[in-house]
Design a binder for these strands. Structure first.
Length: 232
DNA sequence: CGAGTTTGACCTGCGC
DNA sequence: GCGCAGGTCAAACTCG
């Protein structure tokens, strides 16, 4: 699993957090406001009407709050499961690399076998339930193969920040797709073998299909470092 | 001037 | 063997 996926997870997590905090904040703020109004004791008719309106809207707001909290809980559960799987796979890869690094790298370099590698959807940005096509997960084979993961991202351009610095090395018009496919290599190449392919979804051009091949063998560059290099 | 991007040519695998 | 399609290379170009 690419750490880029992690960044997606992180952004997801952050957005959940910000959503939650904004809800909490809104709620708290409203609560404080009503307390403030009440503490004043005497209200004008206009204020009275405003308070009535707020009280009437309260059940709807509370219902929405419950829905959001429930969704947040569900997403947190999914996130935990993904993180758990990521940890397990990472441990597995590290173990394999440390036990027989040469054979690991040799098999990693077998390009065609690489193509047939386990295809797995890591993060689909919530699109999975909405009917976006994903590569079916193939059963794990005995041979260790570099990971191939497909990520669907909503983006305006072909550029997206995933925490790593990429260098474009090719672009190709692919059959049955009016949008060209862009080929990127990790800027740490040849040390880092990771590649990614970025292509617009034929069904929805605002969605990018990003295919990561391999796993980064270096730490994720710091945001400052990425800004310095002009991250893609 | 160096790093990154563009793009046409070339390579390779696969199906017929 | 041939043609097609996907992937990669590398020279030319662009940009800061």
């Amino acid at each position: 699993m690419g750490s880029s996926t992690d960044s997606s997870i992180i952004s997801l997590d952050l957005s959940i957090g910000s959503l939650q905090s904004s809800i909490n904040h809104t709620h708290r703020h409203r609560h404080e406001n009503s307390e403030l109004s009440l503490s004043h004791g005497r209200r004008t008719k206009k204020e009275e009407g405003a308070v009535q309106g707020t009280l009437q809207a309260e059940p709807e707001m509370a219902e929405e709050m419950r829905r959001v909290v429930e969704e947040n809980r569900r997403l947190a559960g999914m996130l935990a499961a993904i993180c758990e799987r990521h940890r397990a796979l990472r441990a597995q890869v590290i173990e394999m690399m440390s036990s027989s690094p040469s054979s690991f790298m040799a098999s990693a370099m077998k390009k065609r076998k690489f193509e047939a590698a386990v295809s797995q959807v890591d993060v689909v940005n919530g699109r999975k339930e909405n009917g976006w096509r994903c590569s079916p997960a193939k059963p794990a084979t005995e041979e260790v193969r570099p990971r191939v993961s497909k990520v669907y991202i909503r983006a305006d351009g072909l550029l997206m920040k995933d925490g790593y610095h990429w260098r474009k090395y090719g672009q190709k018009v692919i059959r049955d797709n009016p949008y060209p496919r862009a080929y990127f290599r990790c800027s740490f190449a040849p040390v880092c073998p990771v590649k990614k392919k970025v292509q617009r979804c034929t069904e929805n051009q605002s969605v990018l299909v990003v295919t990561y091949e391999g796993e980064h063998n270096h730490v994720q560059p710091s945001p400052a470092e990425l800004d310095l290099n002009g991250a893609s």
